[in-house]
């Protein structure tokens, strides 16, 4: 009995310890961000591996999610004779929720896990230690550019996802199901608000980008420097990011759209 309580306590303590380390790392990273603007080429390098490499998966997923929305939405709306509102349904679902959330989940799987594995391997092969001994702070040199790149990439990826998704919905709605294209776009424009919907979606994706990149970098930096440890850290990145994205999405949605 006592042992159970004790192991519970140990678990709790280690969770708090990790949280503390995570926040300290975040602070150190943020302190390294300003000087990056003097060496922006480091960030461009990371934008390439973090952002550009995620574009394809975002394009394809966005297109299909939009097409599915078009199909499902049409089937529901047509019962009420409201199929002209298909554009509204597709656009609002994408811009408010699916764009930021699904692209963040994909981002965590594609870029987040890669970041963790990269940093974890650099740690296990003593590259990070080596840098420290060369008087180069790995947090500023390695982590900070990746953080900024993730932070910049995420809203762009989410915007691409939403735009492609709306296009996919239009392809299915107009091309396949014959919804009037004028009604599709005009209803969408009338009901989708720039501030309320689009900008709130962008804010969501910025928050997700911040959190996912942070988790990925921390897991890599904190990984046990063995191949098994790096593998576990990579899995943790994806799982924790998914939890964080969905949990934060609820909180943000409640703040933005719920009159709480």
């Amino acid at each position: 009995m006592i042992d159970t309580i004790r192991s519970l306590g140990r678990w709790g303590l280690s969770v708090f310890e990790r949280l503390g380390r995570g926040h300290l790392l975040l602070l150190a990273i943020l302190r390294g961000v300003p000087e990056l603007f003097l060496r922006f080429s480091l960030v461009i390098q990371q934008l390439f591996s973090v952002g550009v490499h995620s574009v394809l998966i975002i394009l394809i997923s966005g297109l299909f999610v939009g097409m599915v929305l078009g199909l499902q939405g049409y089937n529901t709306l047509v019962d009420f004779g409201a199929e002209e509102s298909l554009g509204v349904l597709v656009a609002l679902s994408l811009v408010r929720e699916l764009g930021p959330v699904v692209s963040a989940l994909l981002f965590a799987g594609r870029a987040g896990s890669a970041l963790t594995a990269e940093i974890g391997l650099m740690k296990s092969t003593e590259q990070l230690s080596g840098m420290e001994m060369m008087a180069v702070d790995p947090v500023r040199r390695v982590l900070a550019p990746r953080f900024l790149a993730g932070f910049i990439s995420m809203p762009l990826l989410a915007a691409i996802f939403s735009a492609v998704g709306v296009f996919g919905g239009f392809l299915v709605g107009h091309g396949l199901l014959g919804v009037d294209d004028g009604a599709f776009w005009s209803q969408m424009q009338a009901k989708t608000d720039w501030y309320e919907d689009v900008l709130n979606g962008v804010i969501k994706s910025i928050v997700f980008g911040f959190v996912v990149t942070w988790i990925a970098l921390f897991e890599g930096y904190d990984a046990t420097p063995t191949s098994e440890g790096v593998g576990r850290a990579t899995t943790r990145t994806v799982v924790h990011s998914a939890f964080a994205i969905l949990g934060l999405d609820f909180v943000l949605t409640a703040l933005m759209f719920g009159d709480v």
């Binding site: 550009v52 811009v95 492609v164 776009w185 989708t192 720039w194 962008v202």
Partner: peptide
């Protein structure tokens, strides 16, 4: 490629603004 990526993201945002929403 990074330039194209950033441009694509901004274009997408522009499309959301002009075409999708009431911006």
């Amino acid at each position: 490629t990074v330039g194209m990526f950033v441009a694509a993201g901004l274009v997408a945002l522009f499309v959301l603004a002009m075409k999708v929403s009431n911006f």
